[in-house]
Amino acid sequence: MKITMAHGSGGRATGELIEQIFAKNFNNEVLDKMEDSAVVAGNKKIAVTTDSFVVDPIEFPGGDIGRLCVCGTVNDLLMRGAKPQYLTCGFILQEGADTEVIRRIVESMAETAREAGVQIVAGDTKVVEGNGGMYINTAGVGFVEEDVEISAQQCTPGDVVIISGNMGDHHATILGCRMGIENTIKSDNAPLNEMVNALLTNKIKVHTLRDITRGGLATVLKELAQTSKCTIRLKEDSIPVSPQVRDFCGLLGLEPYYMGNEGKMVAIVAKEDAAKALELIRSSRYGQDAAIIGEVTDEEAGELWMETAIGGIRSLEILQGEGLPRIC
């Protein structure tokens, strides 16, 4: 069945769509009440975030917009040391969208939400003219323990820079789909609960966490260096990139350090805890390729320097220009 403007009318067609696809998959005691807003328990510091997802194509190797819209918001909560609890979701469907595709996307969202330990407690659907596409907005709430203080301002000279795995997989996947380049690269879209929980429960001195999404590693680290007024030094040959993504980049003249990811984070941790932190991330789900890639120094405020494979020093800037639109 195809979506028509009637599915956004708020009437019977809307009700059927919600009942048959959304409510069926997202069922939990809060959502099932179908009230105007969700009332949930909570007595801790809360983290709140929101993100909109417009990825094109909506289904791609290794994931889809449904998995992506849960992971994106969950990971943003995790990066402040929060334990993700609740999500809301707003669907903007274009006329002509196939309900079977919507069903698959919603099932994928529900499964990812279960994996990430969050409940989808509120939602909305609108239909607009168009040609069968869809956008999803998710907002999320997480609880933060009193003693947890993780922020972009806390990179400290002496700290060690760890990334949780290979760079560029998601970006290469989306670009490969759009350009029709045959390959077996898969998106890395994943919720990073397990590795963040491991760091927090083991009382690792984590100063900063950031998910490495649009703009890529270089943009994220340059921004951290600016916010924390420090220098970050990297070693190029320690940055993990899969051979296939490396070749894909070579073919298209791209650099993995500027490519977006959807299931990777950078952790800036105190030097004395670095080895333990690396071990914890590596033994967590989605963290097996984690690596120490550099260190924080007090040389100059806001600088990101990389020692290249032949020993030269390269200064990295934030991504300039457009990058790849509609990657998430």
Binding site: E255, M306, T308, A309, I310, G311, G312, I313, R314
Partner: peptide, 9 residues
């Protein structure tokens, strides 16, 4: 030349 940091060498 930029990418490999050659000026610094």
């Amino acid at each position: 030349i930029s990418k490999f940091g050659i000026p610094t060498l």
